[in-house]
Design a protein around this nucleic acid. Structure first.
Lengths: 347, 347
DNA sequence: CTGTTAGCGCGTTCAT
DNA sequence: ATGAACGCGCTAACAG
């Protein structure tokens, strides 16, 4: 592979001139510039990013660590990250922690050794606060994505409490009183907040006493499936189910299918986090749809700001979520969900 | 950020000793080794991947360029690639070409400048043969993934013709004679092969004359939707539809939904490429399911082999696809599809 | 407008 | 078992 000295020799100029025409970093006589260009083309020279990174002490790369590359939500997020990174001239290094603390650790190490200019991290459940602190202390620029922490870190996530409240209130408005939530790992901030939203909606207002809140915590689709079976075997089973995530919804729907229960005729179901092509297949699930692509985009924007301004105060960004009102809640087509605040686009 | 000389000074040894204990590359007296280890820990040293890459002339990174990071199939493939890369000690650089020739070109350039040890490429439609050749000529190790080319490149894809034949034969066995295919961009090898599979199945056997093959080529879900409307407005409309891809299936199903047609009661539908959670929602589409994760895995394995053996002959690997027999083809539960050759696992 | 040169941080001979 | 020193390819002073 040709180096800069090969080009310099061939063009009959110094390496510094070559460097300057390649980078457009100082005026060069048009004639010599062309000579250099020709030499570059003829030897097929392309500048060595490693050497440049070493010299400039910056790689123009950012790292992204997610817990599961394959999940549709993360996949969209990755697309957002990739797009904005490319726009900003950054290359994306991707790692999958598989929701495993050890792997997350080694993924981060690998990226740090690669000297990424910054790191986007969707933490695994149970990530110690100290990990983030030590990273920052070592000078690594980090922004948390989706899985948030305390506000002393840069982070961008999606609003959860409010949309979940809206969803549950909607069920209440439709006359449901026994609404059960199939919740997820409480150690994951997003999931904990969704549970809070549910509880707040269930416990507010004058007729809160008439309602019966039930929460079961599950860690997998299989557990969700079992939990729903148990829930529905109770003497006074819930008439509506709230699934805390897509993964949980899968188990929930399996159980409902086992029981030959029809949605929404026999039971209402709503979900936090939308399925791809949810409009096309039935049951058409009413759900909270998260702006995954925007999430990725905003996260790299924040990271870029952080890289530019290392001393700026930490920022937390919450993106608005929308609600896709379909028919699994039992509404006739055309009905509306009343939302406390109108949607506001993030650009 | 601490460098190797900081560690050396602190430990009272030479940089070369530090290097050797870090890499375990020559015997070091246990006592000094520990001293070095301690120094490393105390300054929080981690070796600079850029400097190492420059020196060793290899980055231990591979690049992956896909046409759409967000598509479920590619998302799974990415997971396969990431997993196998990590296993092999390689870091993954990800780029999204957005099915655009220009962007593909700049993505590749970026990765080559980053001096990746190898490149996995799912080509965009219309990628010139010469692009691949010039890459190889410049010494870049490339393996094509999913979107294949002529056999003089390393490549790994999924079998298409045979599973598509099986799918169509199944429709024929069920008594359908007017089976239309909603096909995709013929310039994409995968899609072209799927069309061939359809045609071969339609034209084989003694009663081929009784069958009516129809192919419409579309480039988007919207076009697919329109095409299906047109198809079904014909005097003798097809009784079964074959969607060439997931994207095309989306448009197809929209049209069927517009027309209030029920699957499979009013019309049978089969698809090449499976939807996530296809068992959970209805209609439950009978489809070809591709081993996406394995695809990614095998591709990096092949790439690693290529890196080790630069002069080995080019290899083409085709992974077997499975058929998920559900109910959109009109079969009662429990019915079987007869497949010419039994499934064979790739390990 | 152009050239010379000193490192960036590391791995690796070659000595000792 | 350890150290000294060169150079990977490039950028950025500095000098002319």
């Amino acid at each position: 592979m040709a180096t800069i000295v090969d080009v310099a020799r061939l063009a009959g100029v110094s390496v510094s001139t070559v460097s300057h025409v390649v980078n457009g970093t100082r005026p060069v006589r048009p004639e010599t510039r062309e000579r250099v260009r020709a030499a570059v083309a003829s030897v097929g020279y392309s500048t060595d990013g490693m050497a440049r990174a070493l010299r400039r002490a910056q790689t123009e790369c950012i790292g992204l660590v997610v817990t599961d590359t394959g999940q549709p939500g993360f996949a969209e997020m990755i697309r957002g990250v990739e797009g904005e990174a490319t726009t900003a001239g950054l290359t994306l290094l991707l790692a999958d922690s598989a929701e495993d603390l050890e792997r997350q650790l080694s993924s981060i190490s690998a990226l740090v050794e690669r000297r990424v200019d910054g790191l986007l991290l969707a933490q695994v459940s149970g990530t110690p606060h100290s990990l983030l602190e030590s990273l920052i202390a070592r000078g690594v620029r980090v922004v948390l994505i989706d899985r948030l922490s305390t506000p002393d870190f840069d982070q961008v996530g999606v609003e959860t409490v409010e949309p979940m409240q809206t969803l549950v209130r909607h069920l209440i408005d439709r006359g449901h009183t026994r609404i059960a939530m199939i919740a997820g790992d409480n150690a994951i901030p997003t999931l904990r907040e969704r549970r809070e939203g549910y509880l707040e909606a269930m416990e507010e207002g004058p007729d809160a006493g008439a309602r019966q809140a039930t929460i079961v915590e599950v860690a997998s689709p299989a557990e969700a499936r079992a939990a729903v079976h148990e829930l529905l075997a109770a003497p006074e089973p819930p008439t509506a189910l709230v699934a805390a995530s897509q993964v949980i919804a899968v188990g929930t729907m399996q159980a409902l299918s086992d029981l030959k229960l029809r949605i929404p005729d026999d039971i209402a179901v709503v979900v936090f986090d939308d399925f791809p092509h949810a409009d096309l297949f039935r049951p058409r699930l009413t759900s909270v749809v998260q702006p995954n692509v925007a999430l990725g985009r905003e996260a790299v924007r924040l990271l870029v700001r952080r890289i530019k301004h290392p001393k700026a105060p930490a920022r937390t960004i919450r993106l608005k979520a929308e609600i896709a009102h379909r028919d699994s809640c039992g509404c006739p087509p055309g009905a509306l969900i009343q939302s406390p605040n109108p949607r506001e686009d993030v650009r």
